[in-house]
Nucleic acid binder design. Structure first.
Lengths: 239, 239
DNA sequence: ACAAAAGTGTTTGAACTACACCCATGC
DNA sequence: GCATGGGTGTAGTTCAAACACTTTTGT
């Protein structure tokens, strides 16, 4: 298989998905337990071989369909390529990893060997899948701050308290409902539905419900610094 | 080659580099002119096949060595995978693209078929290489704002004016030297060398020289919003 | 009335932009 | 002197965190 004159090889390519959601106050990822060697009884990210007629994104969507209902996946984005020659035993396989998100109100049926696991307490994982899951977590955390990606974790309508729980779980620290409300409102991401949620058994003011204005990811805080000058300024004299 | 039962194939993998630098007020990329079909006389990004014993980053560094002196490349980072089945004619090739940067004071020798081209005025490009170059440009522009990646464009020592030219060219709009100075100083990225540059023929106060404190990329503006609460606050009550 | 939860008003502070002004050099 | 470019002082704005306080419900 290896061409001795160049050292190049026709190698296999797989796609892997870190499918994340928030449930019970923690960030979870879909893993399946390997029945066979290599790495039997260790847990893997869903995925599989890239086919000849599909690009990597089409592939990950097809592969996911075998584990979870793809219609329940609210966001898919490329993470990175993992290509260490020995990342899996046997013939070489290069992997393209994806970050996928499932809204918290959906609970897609999973095959019997497959389950959600908290990212804080992963079971023994196969190959480099723990690294990939951890990269997915980092990516999500970053994007919560400067994009509208919260829409992909949230149900179609939610109260600010519910949204706060989602953000807190995903970020790993307590988020203030007050400030979360204002940041998202200032950016025009929240639309009131007009409905209100019923108070719990202990009473309390009914919470207003909101939805996200957009359901496609967009950068909402594009320039932290070094913004373009106010008056356009393509060539404006400065300082 | 194709396995009829699964549709999977052992396919080729290439790595491609968008090597960028700033010169003469514009952002440039290294391209080589294809002599042979396919896409003869169109311009390509440097790169080549992934070998069996290297990961994609090792591969891009090796491939680059054939075009530019790798020691002159100050930063290398993965961009994305490009995998459309028809992205190149003939047998399928999946590509991992990289963003690479060369400091402005270096002028590596290039082979005769290879040259720097301004990203604002690219010649006819081969395959999907224009898309890749454009993604590299976007990535660089974003990272200039929230990381110290400027070090990879700048010479070892520079005046604020010189640095301003680099940032302006890379970002595509005029940056204020005053504010650039303060933003970078506030973040602790600039170290005065003690030296000063000589004024030009028209006079003017001699400019102080600086260097970047770090020569590895680091995120300097980690959270735009939704920072963790001040007193750690892993579980602090908020709101 | 009281507790609980939601939501608003307001203060404080940090970070960045803009612009005026001062400094050091060549001619 | 005065033009030229470098550098600092400082006001003004925006944005977000913190926290006090009001609102609306259940018991």
């Amino acid at each position: 298989m290896t061409d001795a004159t160049t050292g190049t090889a026709a190698l296999a390519h797989e796609v892997l998905a870190a499918v994340l959601r928030v449930r019970a106050g923690s960030l979870q990822v879909v893993l399946w337990e390997r029945a066979m060697e290599p790495h039997a009884h260790r847990w893997s990210l869903p995925g599989g071989r890239l086919r000849a007629d599909e690009d990597v994104e089409a592939s990950i969507r097809r592969q996911l369909a075998e584990k979870v209902d793809v219609r329940k996946v609210s966001h898919v984005e490329q993470l990175a390529v993992f290509s260490a020659p020995d990342r899996v035993p046997g013939p070489r396989v290069v992997a393209t990893a994806f970050l996928c998100l499932v809204p918290s109100h959906l609970d897609p049926e999973l095959p019997p060997d497959t389950a959600w696991h908290s990212l804080d307490a992963l079971p023994p994982t196969a190959f480099d899948h723990e690294t990939i899951a951890s990269r997915a977590q980092s990516r999500l955390r970053s994007k919560l701050s400067y994009t509208n990606i919260g829409f992909a974790l949230a149900p179609p309508a939610f109260t600010i308290s519910e949204l706060r729980e989602l953000y807190s779980a995903a970020l790993g620290y307590r988020v203030s409902a007050t400030n979360l409300q204002r940041v998202l409102a200032r950016r025009g991401l929240l639309v009131p539905t007009g409905e209100t949620a019923k108070p719990g058994r202990a009473g309390g003011r009914p919470a207003a419900q909101f939805r996200f204005a957009d359901t496609r990811m967009a950068v909402t805080d594009p320039f932290a610094v070094l913004r373009p000058p106010a008056g356009d300024g393509a060539l404006g004299r400065t300082n």
